[in-house]
Design a protein around this nucleic acid. Sequence first.
DNA 1: TTGCACTGACTATACGGTCAGTCAATATAA
DNA 2: TTATATTGACTGACCGTATAGTCAGTGCAA
Lengths: 182, 182
Amino acid sequence: MDKKTQIIEIATKLFSENGFENTSISRVCEASNVSKGLVFHHFKSKDGLLREIFSVTTKKIIEMNESINDEQKPMDRLYDLINSFFIQIKSDKLFFQLNLNVMTQPKTRELLNDLIKERSTFILTSVKQIFNQINTENAEIISYLFIAELDGIALNYLGIFDNYPLEQIKEQLIKKYIKNGI
Amino acid sequence: MDKKTQIIEIATKLFSENGFENTSISRVCEASNVSKGLVFHHFKSKDGLLREIFSVTTKKIIEMNESINDEQKPMDRLYDLINSFFIQIKSDKLFFQLNLNVMTQPKTRELLNDLIKERSTFILTSVKQIFNQINTENAEIISYLFIAELDGIALNYLGIFDNYPLEQIKEQLIKKYIKNGI
DNA sequence: TTGCACTGACTATACGGTCAGTCAATATAA
DNA sequence: TTATATTGACTGACCGTATAGTCAGTGCAA
């Protein structure tokens, strides 16, 4: 494998597990069997490495979204969205962990500000599109609330509550958004 | 003012503004006109200082809740809860910032694990009590979702979206929980 | 021969934490 | 009242360590 890609992958894992500030470049080098010089050859700084990681992740999110965007009915797309969110949050905890981590730390949030804006705009637009097609009143505000709900669930599940009843919460969400008319 | 209290207050402010990992004890000392030795005289470590800060904050939350817990109707209490959340989030951004920060960083989350559990249990219990009195079906899950919504709103408002339409989101929340029957 | 991925020893700096000691206030004893 | 002992808040120089980042140089593919 390309060593540059390898550095990105290992760094993503370590940043997720230990947090960005608590992961030194030396540890990344150790874990990926690469010299310190090489990291700074490929990335202009530790901050630059994080930016690249965040960009790569955003690309993945966009690709994933495009692959789902079939010609389904909007209600089914919403259902799929909720389902895939809960699947992801269970299987890829670290990914969510890292994103929460960098978005809630003042320094990294500043560093990634433009990339965060770019990503969140994309997500808002996608969700709003669905609610618009469902013909929801107040689609924009409902979209904001929907995103807040998912983010809040991720936050509470990953960082706050023990024995978080994910499955029941998912059912409740589906009931709320799919079965009732919001 | 007591120098110990002063250290706690200044440290809270700096940790909130710059993040825990990005605030050195030296900077805390500078800002509060106190020697390094004194900080370690009062607190056994930097981590210990953070734990004390978090504890103090939890105490404040509990006190605040108890002062609200009048003999109001449960629906009014829910209304008050939502309102005071939105007032707080606007006026005390830094406070929320710090709490999100320490709960999403692996190292600090570990360090504060027991305190986070204690606080979140208290919050869940308080909210569940209200929904129980309203006679909500599935009060526990509804409580989890309600808390997730508020946390998500805080996260999105403080860390993700520009021009977050707080006021409209508040109205929508009230409509959902108070005017409709959830 | 040129260019580029790659190395690892090196530097400057900043960090958390320690420690010997100062000083003022309080308690004790005469 | 006066002299002495004890406490505990407080200082700042100091220490070992770890960090991000540099750079002169190596080896290899085109």
